[in-house]
Structure formats: C-alpha cells, structure tokens
Nucleic acid binder design. Structure first.
Lengths: 220, 220, 220, 220
DNA sequence: AATGAATGAGTTTTCATTCAT
DNA sequence: TATGAATGAAAACTCATTCAT
C-alpha cells in the first residue's frame, strides 16, 4: 500500500546515497506527515539500510528538516527559471500563477510538507538558517514586475509584492491542498482541467485587483 | 507537556463524558495530526480513563472520524447563523469572508483537521455518510445571494457558487494555515490585524471579480 | 545462559509487580553492569512485560537508580539489625566485620552495584536525595562503640568512625569484589572458608590498630 | 605527521598503530567498562580507522583482552622498579603500600579494568595464558621481605605473602575504587591528601599486624 | 597498511489496545 | 458506568562488524 519501490542500489557512492535518502525522505514525509513517516520506509525507498540514514543525518528530526529544506529548494529552482523580466507585466502575473498551480499539483510534496510544518507550528523551519533568503529572490522579481506595471499604467501603484504573492499562493494552494475534502464535500472533479480553470479564474481575479482605478476592464 | 489540563471529573454522565472526549479528541488531533495524536493525551484532556474512550468509540480511527465530523458540524453551525438573506448582496459577501477568516483563526482546529484529512487522502471523510449534506446549506445560500446580486445588477451572472466559495475559502485559509512558515519565510506579522487586512483585501478582490462587465469600481 | 527464570506471574497487583521488577533489576544490573543489563531480561526475570517497566520507572536509567538505591537499603536493613550496643566493644567490631564480609559474599549485587556506580563516576547516586542519610545510622553506632571502647580503656581515643568503617569495608570488599582475578592471578581458593579466614585476619588487624598505646596484645 | 624523516619502515608504523590502539582501548574500557566501551571511540582516540582495529585484534573481546593484559603489564612494570631488597623490611612494606596507593590513583584504569573483569566473572583473564606469572615476581619479592623481617626479629614469622599482598591491596583499593560513592555517602573529601592519609593509616595497621608477639608498639 | 561506505542484529522506547474488576 | 493493570507489535536508534578499494 505504501509506495515502496526498492530502488536500484547505488553502491559505495556517498553523495548519491545522500541524495537518494533525501528524495525518499521528502516523499515519505510528504505522504505521511512527520509522525506518520517511517525511517524504515525511507530506507526502503532509498534502497539503503536504516543505519546509513542515521550516519548521514543523525536522527529523524534532522532528516525531516533536510526534507523540508529540500522542498523549498525545489520550488525556488522552478521559480528562478521563470523569466518574468522578459514578459509584459500582466503576462508575468499569469505566468507565475500558472507555474504555482502547476508546481503545487505536480510536486505534491511541497504542499504537504508546508502543511506538516505548520501543524508543528514551524518548529523546524525556524531553525533553518537560510529559510528567509530562500524566497526573497521571487519577491524581488515580483516587486520589479509591479513597478514596471505601474510605470506602464497597467497596474495601480502601492501594491505590496509579498501581499500579492500570498494572494497568488492562496488561490493556487487551497484547491490542491484540499482536493480530497473538496471532492467529497462539494463534489468537485479535482483533476487537471479543473485546476487549470482555477488558475484561470485566479489570474482574472488578481489582474482585476491590480488594475488601476480608472481603468475599464480589459479581461480576456 | 502539551496543554493537558486534567479537567474536573464528570461522574456517571455518559453523554457528558462522550462530549468531553469528542472535544478533547478534536483538540488533540487538530494539534498533533492523526499520527501525532495520543489516546493517552485525549483521555487526560477529557478527564476520563482510556478504556472509556474505547467503550464509546471503538478505536483511534473512529475517534478521529468523530472529531473530523465535529469540526465540520461546528463551522456549519456558525455559517447557519449568518443571515445572508437579510443583507445587500455585496454586504453578504463581505460578511461571509469576514466570518470565514474569523472562524479559521479563532477555531484553529478546523484548518488543521482539514489538512490532516487531506494528508490522509480523504480516507476518512469519504466514509462519513453525511459529509456531502454538511455544506450544501451554505452553497444554497450563496447561490441565492448570487442570483439576487445578478437581478439587482450588482453582480455579473453565471458565477458558480461553489467556485465562489472555494475562492473565498482559499483567500482566508492560506494565510492562517501557513502562518508559521509565512512568518519565517516572509517575515509577516501574522497577528489579528494582519489577518483583518487580508480579509479586507480578499473582499475587495472578490467583489471586483463579481462585478458586472460595464460597472466601474465602487470600492470602499 | 543468563539467569532467566520466568518467575510466576503476580497478576494485577501493582505493588507486587513493582517489587518484582526492582529485585529483578537489582540482579540484572549487578550481574551485567549498567550497559550490559537488558530491560528485556529484567522483564523476563520479573515475569512482567517490558512496557510495565517503563510505566513504573520511566526509562532504563531510572530503573538503574532505583536498583542502586535498593542495594543500599538492603545493606542498611542488615546493619540496623546488628545490636552493637549490647556487645563488648571488641566484640562489636568483630561482629560488624563478620557481617560485612558475609553480606558482601551472600548478596553479591551490593558490591557489583557499587563498582558499576563508581565506574559511572557516581553520576546516579549524586541525584539520590537520601543517599547521605542512608548510612549515617551505622556511623553513629560505630561512633558509640568507639567511645565506649575508649572509656573502657580497650580502644585508643580519637579514632574517626568513618575512617574505621572504610578500613573495615576495604578489608572485606576487595577479596570478594576481586575474587575472580585473585583466583587466576594468585591461585586463591576463593570459597567460604577462605573468606572467613580473611574476615578473621581483618578483625585481628583492626583490633590491634584500635588498641590503646600501652596495651599489650591480647590476640585470639 | 612527522615530516622530515627518511621514510620509516612500515613495520614501525604498524607497531605504533598497534600501541596507539592498545592505549586507547585501555582508556576506553577503563572508563566505560566492557559493554559501555565503543569501538568507534577507540578508533577516534587512537587516531585510526575502525577496520584497522579489526585487522590487528580481530574483534571487540580480543581488544578487551589485550587491554586487560596491558593493565597488568603496566602495574607489574612499576612494581619491578621497586627495590624492596635494598630497604629495611618495614620500609619495604611502607614503600609498597605507598606505591600501590599511588598507582591506583594515578593510573585509574587499573582499578576499573579489574572491576570490569570481575563483573564478567573473570571470563577473559582465565584465558590469558600468562596471567599467573604476571604477578608472581612481586609475591616472591614480598616473601623475601617477610623472611628478612622475621630473621631480623621485626616481623612475626609464618605470614603468607599472598595474604599480606591482598591486605595491602584491599586497604589501598577500596578508597580509590569507591571514591565517588564514598564522597556522596560519607562526605569524604576524596583528594590526594585524603588518599595519603589512608595510605599512612594502612601502613600503620599492617606493620602492627606484622609485628612479632612480644613487640611493643613503635608507631610514629 | 589503511579507510570510507555500508549493514544485520539487536536495544530502548512507545502506543493502541485489552483484561479484570 | 468506569478504571487501574497489563501487553503485543512496532518504532527510533545503536553498534560490532564487514565490504570494496
């Protein structure tokens, strides 16, 4: 029932072993949460023995911390590839919304890791030294887009880039994070097409909100 | 170590014991998640012995299912008290947004229970027979508000009430659900005032989105 | 191979279970030392399950601490039964020496517990609140004997009772504590008879040492 | 590590590694006992890798056996340097007592190794082929001292040198071996000065005991 | 001669659950 | 109705030992 694929052995290659453990941990913690995750299962998924995990990370919490960090690193890598500078402001927003929705859906461990960490009241992320820097890049990019948009007259000015980012994330996060309860409670068909419509609606909503006061609606 | 307050004993009152266990379970599961929750701790919080919990509920999963159901019941009770019919359409929207944001923040167990259940891929809610009905009331109310708004010319027509509800929930859910990571990663001061500004912005955004095509912005 | 006797079960009697665990722990720690002792083995010896041990004591160290305390309690009980007041001073000394030698030999856990605790640099006994009082009774009794002896002119005065006790213990302790190495290195027949000759010699030595300056030897 | 030397023969390196391991093992086993000692820690202390230890010694027990033997070798070396033949009999006794007390205190691994081995019921020393010879030298020297003393009329005759040695060891061993528990239980200030007073008293006691029947006390 | 990489077989500890009253 | 006593099964973690170079 649990996704144990023995994984081919990578013999005597410390760095490869480390990375295998990290990815296995990310998946296991994301699927089961901090307390539901099993070191045994991580070892199985990574194709290594349990003691090796302790050799490399020390204890379960440290493995968890490394997995949490990895979740952030992975989304940051995706965000950094976005070339927002090269796009028209409205297009940049649409692009980021689309990326977020996609990433949340295709790398499901990101959302569940965040939920798990928030359930634990952020006790681990607080200790990750570089957690702050980890997303500052994106905020700076967003600030630039907002400025350009204001200068070009397509956005109103004075929008806080962090607030904008949180709105984007909110609209993309909830439908994915809560897809199982939504399916049961509202009967939503929580599939790819539905998610894309969500992202579409989110872009609409955000661009309306960013539009300058006197502007009439342009919409799609 | 966790917030165990022994609670005064309720002697020989089956219904009271049941309710004490239920509330204790709701808090424990909401604080620690399904796997982190401890039957011992629930017994302690409820001021009863462990075997009593098994007598009443059968096993840990059944206690969890009852707690999950209780979370929905509690929010539905709040929503039913909202007199959306008596308000102007825009006011009704604002009111629901405010209520959602407030409820998420003041009854923190709702969000964490949903996250926990979604981490478990909805395996429990699927079996709750009445889960579907549980929120249909609200959707019907929202549909009525939307119709009234369209009739009065303040909303565009053709808006799906479920989609609207999900958007409302999204904007209110994420900032509360992720408050610990947001604080660390973005340095947000995740307090009451900040949440109210989030709700304010959410209302703005939603009303703009609901506005009919030709309408100019009203804003506050 | 290890001295596991399943022991008859004492069902549903908390105090009896506690005592069974304590005695089993005393024997196991005394035989194997702190790190060699096994909780599994203690459970087996006591005829209870492992979790019960954790219920009652908390963890291995706490079990060890309780066992160490018990070792002292047991020897104190023996010492308290000695009626030194009723004996002539020299007889009291002989009696205490004999008791010590006997106790060391017949309750072998006392010596090995002390050795174990000293190997651990007294890290546990330091935290036992009542460790100090535990032997003060005996020292007071010895002081009385010394005073009586001095008054009667059979002992010199000014002997420190603690120093005397340590000398007694030294002479009785070493031959028992080191019986295995002594047997191999010196070929001593470390049996009951040999131990009694040791105690005899110890008494001689101590009484000579206690004798007042002018006294001529009485000997046996 | 040592840079400017004409390449040393490999055998010398091997021998140095062996000795480093042996001393590291002696210290580790003496500090933690057989079961508390860690091969990892021995490797660390010795500055070599774990597999090297297995190459040289085979397994943990063999390392332990070698360390135990080394403890005896070291004390024998000290005892052999004592020139008991050149001293007056009483002086020889005092000298040996002083040496024992000093050695026990300054080479603390001797006592803890003996205690550890006795905890293990001598299972290792029994297999050391040369354990017996290891201290016979000292016993022969002591026998000679006793004979000289008897001939000179300062000792009574018929004293068993082994019994004498055990008495000496007893009085010097216990206060050092049990210094941690003694400190807590009796409040003894177990420092250098205190130990010297113990040795002093031990010499007194032993010489009184060795004195011939008619002799009056000399004392200091 | 020497070591970094890896693990099998335990050991302590935890926890949902049942027994007996 | 209620609970103190007890445990089987499993989890995190450890450690002597071997592998491969």
């Amino acid at each position: 029932m649990s996704g144990a694929r023995p994984a081919e052995p990578r013999r005597r290659d410390a760095e490869a072993s480390r990375r295998a453990i990290l990815q296995a941990a990310l998946e296991e913690f994301a699927e089961k949460g901090h307390d539901g995750a099993r070191i045994d299962e991580i070892a199985l998924r990574a194709g290594v023995s349990k003691p090796l995990i302790y050799d490399y990370f020390g204890n379960k919490n440290a493995v968890y911390a490394a997995a949490l960090r990895e979740a952030y690193v992975q989304i940051r890598e995706g965000e950094e590839e976005l070339e927002l500078d090269a796009m028209a402001p409205a297009e940049a927003i649409r692009s980021l919304v689309r990326f977020s929705a996609l990433h949340f859906q295709e790398k499901p461990w990101f959302i569940t890791m965040l939920n798990t960490e928030n359930l634990r009241r952020g006790s681990t992320i607080t200790d990750l030294k570089d957690a702050g820097e980890i997303q500052s890049v994106l905020v700076r990019k967003l600030a630039a887009v907002l400025e350009r948009g204001a200068a070009e007259g397509v956005f109103r000015s004075g929008v806080d880039p962090v607030e904008l980012y949180i709105s984007i994330a909110s609209l993309c996060y909830f439908p994915v994070s809560n897809r199982f309860t939504l399916r049961v409670v509202f009967g939503c068909p929580v599939d790819r097409a539905w998610m894309e419509r969500c992202a579409e609606a989110a872009s609409e909503m955000l661009l309306l909100w960013l539009a300058p006061p006197q502007n009439t609606r342009k919409s799609r």
